[in-house]
Design a protein around this nucleic acid. Sequence first.
DNA 1: TATAAAAGGACTAAAACGGTCCTAAAGGTG
DNA 2: CACCTTTAGGACCGTTTTAGTCCTTTTATA
Lengths: 136, 136
Amino acid sequence: MMELTRKGEYAIRGIIYLAQLPPGKVALISEIAEAAEVPQTFLAKILQSFAKIGIVKSFRGAGGGFTLGRSAEQITLREVVEAVEGPILPNRCLLGAGSCERDGTCGVHPVWREVQGKVVEVLDGVTIKELATRTK
Amino acid sequence: MMELTRKGEYAIRGIIYLAQLPPGKVALISEIAEAAEVPQTFLAKILQSFAKIGIVKSFRGAGGGFTLGRSAEQITLREVVEAVEGPILPNRCLLGAGSCERDGTCGVHPVWREVQGKVVEVLDGVTIKELATRTK
DNA sequence: TATAAAAGGACTAAAACGGTCCTAAAGGTG
DNA sequence: CACCTTTAGGACCGTTTTAGTCCTTTTATA
Ligand code: SF4
Ligand code: SF4
């Protein structure tokens, strides 16, 4: 249960690599993919989607590549994970009332709410900066 | 991320229904399925797998059906969920060393370990009994 | 023996996963 | 301007998982 997909795993590895670079340095997708040991074209898609939401910045043409969109301490692991996997949602009844007609009477509902809260708390509490410095 | 499948959802609903019955009462799969609002043949598979591991007991033939395999306060939500979804495992690197060759140097690894711990803690802390009494 | 269940197995449609490949667009360089 | 480099976007694809159904067999009761 609750498994991160490869997409999520790759996204995290890629962004950590970016965070380990000297600030401002742009890295080629080929370079990131090799360092993170991730299929290049797949990682490209992921970083492109990150560029859209501002987590990374991208530059085209010669001398182009990717950089972090803001400083590593301002990007949380939660953000990265959610960007790629969607919201932390142990059960679909947690998104919006009425998604399950039983939620009013259901004793399990609050448990999922609690699980969600704990996971979000952990993931919100760790920044990419921390991960980058802790990772060799 | 981390979504419970319908199988898991149905399993929980079914077992809660069993827990709400007077102790010792056997219920037909048709009855459980209707009450829990779950496809009958699908629920049958789930309860059959539960019978194998002892969470429920089953009886064939006329007058047969299903009962809890032990008292509701001795069955945790975690057990039910894991029986149907497999172990709580936010990332595959958590099962066994060597499943990721990076785990020695990886700063993310401990975060997943923590997430796993928190979720297990919550799910272990709630019994089917509690859920049954809390659910109308 | 007839009947009432659950058990087991085969099968399936649809979605999600884990990518690849090709073309287009944008930005430097000589 | 022409050419090269690099990301962007879209189409496509094989495999696995999800979410079931259906049919036959076994077991137990009446
Ligand atoms: S029955 Fe309860 S736990 Fe299940 S989806 Fe509905 S509200 Fe959520
Ligand atoms: S890189 Fe780290 S988090 Fe990712 S699978 Fe390997 S050990 Fe786990």
